[in-house]
Each structure stands twice: as C-alpha cells, then as structure tokens.
C-alpha cells in the first residue's frame, strides 16, 4: 500500500524529513507544508537531500505555505487544499509526522 507522508517541521534542526526519507517506499510521496517547505530553499542541504532522493512526481508542497515563505521551487508540485484532499485519497493512507 502507498503512503502520503506529510511533514510540517522545518528540516533545519529537526530530523523528521531525514527519517521519512530513510523509510520512504518507492511509490510513497511527501507533502511539505508549514515550515517544512523551507526544505525547498535552493542550495541547502535539505534541498540536496530531496534532489538525490529522486522524488519526481512524488514531492508536493502546500502552495500557501511556499508563497508565504517566498519559496519558489520546481522540485515540488504546488497543491492547494482541494488537491491536498485529492492526494490523501490517491494514496492508500496518510502519515503525518506530528
């Protein structure tokens, strides 16, 4: 079964994103929201980590959070709330890293 992992903590000084990437299944996806969208900042270690994880079409970011933080990245597909709901149904389950 596939999992949509939802992360909302900044990757700087928190290991949720790193832990998530270690156990990410090949058909799983990640949705970054809240401060987790800072992982998309160009030239940073977390962004490097995401790039090497080869998450094409499996990495999403909540649009309002990226916009609020001036994050403009092509690495993640931006989604609004209706798309978030749709994503939660496209995958078999949602695992939020609280």
């Amino acid at each position: 079964m596939t999992t949509l992992h939802v992360i909302s903590h900044s990757p700087f000084g928190d290991n949720r994103l790193a832990s998530c990437l270690r156990l990410l299944g090949t058909d799983d996806a990640i949705l970054l929201c809240g401060d987790a969208v800072y992982a998309l900042r160009a030239g940073t270690a977390p962004q490097q980590l995401l790039q090497t994880a080869r998450l094409q079409h499996r990495l999403f970011a909540l649009a309002e959070d990226a916009q609020a933080r001036a994050i403009d990245s092509t690495l993640a597909e931006a989604v609004d709330y209706p798309a978030f709901v749709e994503l939660s149904l496209r995958f078999d389950k949602v695992n939020s890293w609280l």
Binding site: S8, S10, G34, D35, K93, V94, S96, L98
Partner: peptide
Amino acid sequence: ADRLVCFGGD
C-alpha cells in the same frame, strides 16, 4: 473512515 488524516506540529 476511508482515511485517517492527522494534523499537528508546526
């Protein structure tokens, strides 16, 4: 439910 979705943290 078909999906359990949790919200917490930042």
